[in-house]
Each structure stands twice: as C-alpha cells, then as structure tokens.
Simulated assay, not measured.
Amino acid sequence: MKEMKTVDAVGQILCHDITQIIKGVTKDAVFRKGHVITEEDIPVLLSVGKDHIYVWENDDTVLHENDAAEILRQLCQNEYMTASEPKEGKIELTATVDGVFQVDESRFDDVNELDDVTIATLPQNMPVKAGQKLAGMRVIPLVIKKDKMEQVKKVAGDKPLLRLRPYQKDIKVGVVTTGTEVFLGRIEDTFTPVIAGKLKPFGLKIDEHRITDDVTEHTRDAIRELVDLGMDMIICTGGMSVDPDDRTPAAIRDAGADIITYGAPVLPGAMFLLGYLTHEGRTIPVMGLPGCVMYAARTVFDLVLPRVMTGERLTRREIRHFGIGGLCMNCKTCHFPVCGFQH
C-alpha cells in the first residue's frame, strides 16, 4: 500500500473501501476495494475529503483489512452462526437459531489485548433469537502485518472464541406446588400460572402438575413421581424461605438431587435453589423458586431458565457470579435481556 495525491491516482487500484457520509441520507462505500480509479472518480474522491489516496502495491508481508477480518471471523465463528461479507474491514456474526450466547472470556480478552485488532459481542449468557446480531470484528489499520495475525491466531487457540447454545426441543416440564393452604383449597394457586407464562415464550408448557402439603415426604414423593413420568425439568414453588415450616429444599434433597446452590446473589431471587437429579442416564434440573418469582417482573429464574433449556449444567461458581449485575433496577419499562441485569 502506498499513499499518493488523488489527482495523480488515475489507473491505480484502491486498496480499501471509500465511505461517503451524508447525514440523514447515506453512510456507505462510494468505491470498493479493488476499484480502478478513473478520471471521473477524482471529483467524487475529493468531495469526500480524499486529497490523498491509498493504492495497492504488492507486499507479501502484510494483509488487507478485509483479509485480516476474515481471520478474526475464523477464530470467532462457531455452530449456529452466519457471517456477513467483509465490508470496510469489518465482519459481523448473526445467530441462526434461538439460544444462549456465550464467550470464552479469558481467551477473548487475551485477543482484544493485542494491538490493532478488535472484537465486540453481546453480553455473556444473553438469550438471543435467530437473526440477532452476535458480534462484530475488525482490524484497525488498512493493512496489518501477517506475523501480527499469526500472533492473534496463537493467542486465540484452536477452539472458537464464541458459542451459541441452542435451546433443546420437546422439553417436558413438571411443576410441584407446595403449601397446605393451597393443597386444602384455602387460597388460589397464583404461582403456577406465572411459571406457565415464563415458559410460553420458549415454546414450553407445564406437562405435569402436582400440589402437595407442607409434609416433606409428600413433596419428595411428588418430585420422584414426575421423574418417573419422564419430566426433563422440575420446578418447585413454595416453602423456599428460612421459616421452620418451609421444607421444599429438604424435599428436593431427599428426592436424590445433588444441590448445586441454595441461595443466589440475585435480587430478586436470593432464596433460589438449583439441583440435578440423575435417573436412568438422564440428568434432570430441579429448581426451587422463591416467592418473588410470582410478583417480580424479572428474577433469578429469568437468568437460569434459558441456560437450563440449552442443557447446560450450571456450577455453583457460575450461579455465584450472577452477583455482578444481579441487582434488578425495577425499571418502569422492562427491557430484559437488553439491560444490565446479570450482565
């Protein structure tokens, strides 16, 4: 690449796109990389502020911005993603399925630490829809040394930096509603319809529902029954606080679940429980939902449900990491997941 006066550039080959910006009208390339400059092009180039122009000259030690961006794409793109054509040194990735978007944070940060390359993504663990933009990447200069891009590849490693976990299909959901007052019909069960509403956007429904009193063994038996009926996910409501007669956590444990966490650094949702049952080779997530899920717009359940639906087995540390961003601002108009909650 070499720089020369635009008025002297007739016959030369552009080595980058030339962008024209007219406020409220257009922001696009008037000439593309590889365009051979003609006499008629000179006034146009001058009108977009290009008194000098960069034209191509052979140099085997450097890569054009579009070619370098293609390397970044290869390092980032994974299954269930589609890539745009390089434009002005930038490539974007878009989701092809609904799911949860994830980034290998450590390697990703190491790549972005390097000079002259940049990758920007959606927040970690964000639920996304097919057709939604996931990431954009580009190199800063018009050309970049080949050995620099070799360094980028070495730092990134062999596995893609990004991942989109698709939602599993045909998940059967079982719900156990606990509470003697509900079991005996003293009050209406207003919690179960809320759960049904949370499941509906994901194409799920409540396949089996059991109501039990506050006897631990009864709740335990209801959970085991739902497991035997082939439920892929079990949700328990009621009895999740620290009151002596709140016994749902004990029932979940007695049913055989490995408790990952009882308590989460999320407000609303501090008394959330997550465990996993193993039955005939299947791993079944069991969630105990605190009462806030019944009345708060967004809670810990909204953070965990999408990830559980992908088949991901969350760890205690991942739940504890929710604390950064785990304070819901209770905005008058909820924009979740396009907000700071969790992220």
Score class of each variant (00 low, 15 high):
K2A: 04
M4C: 08
K5H: 09
V7M: 08
V7G: 06
A9V: 06
C15L: 07
V25I: 15
R32T: 07
K33T: 12
G34K: 01
T38W: 00
D41H: 02
D41V: 00
P43S: 10
P43M: 06
V44T: 13
L45K: 02
G49V: 03
K50S: 07
D51L: 06
H52Y: 09
Y54L: 13
Y54F: 14
V55H: 03
N58G: 12
V62D: 14
V62T: 12
E65T: 00
D67P: 00
A68N: 04
E70M: 05
Q74P: 00
L75P: 03
E79C: 02
M81H: 03
T82W: 00
A83N: 02
P86M: 04
P86Q: 04
K90P: 02
V97M: 11
V103Q: 07
F108V: 06
D116M: 05
V117W: 00
I119T: 03
A120S: 14
L122Q: 11
Q124E: 15
M126P: 01
M126Y: 01
G136N: 03
M137S: 03
P141G: 10
P141N: 09
M149I: 05
E150N: 14
V152L: 05
K153R: 10
A156E: 04
D158M: 06
K159V: 09
L162W: 01
R163N: 14
Y167V: 07
Q168G: 10
Q168P: 01
V173T: 08
T177C: 15
R186F: 03
I187W: 02
I187K: 02
T190S: 12
F191M: 11
T192V: 10
A196C: 09
A196I: 13
A196G: 14
G197N: 15
K198F: 04
K200A: 15
F202C: 12
F202G: 13
K205M: 12
E208N: 11
E208Y: 09
D213G: 13
V215N: 13
T219S: 08
A222C: 04
A222E: 06
I223E: 07
L226M: 11
V227Q: 06
D228F: 02
M231A: 15
M231N: 15
D243K: 07
D243Q: 10
D243M: 07
D246V: 06
D254L: 10
G256N: 03
G256L: 02
G256R: 01
I259G: 13
V266T: 11
M271I: 01
F272S: 09
L274S: 05
G275A: 08
G275E: 12
Y276A: 10
T278C: 06
G281N: 09
R282M: 09
T283V: 14
I284A: 13
P285Q: 11
L289G: 13
G291R: 04
A296C: 12
V308S: 13
E312W: 01
E312H: 05
R313H: 08
L314S: 07
E318W: 00
I319Y: 03
R320P: 00
R320F: 11
H321G: 10
H321V: 09
I324Q: 14
C328L: 06
M329F: 11
K332I: 06
C334G: 08
H335R: 13
F336A: 11
F336G: 10
F341Y: 10
Q342E: 12
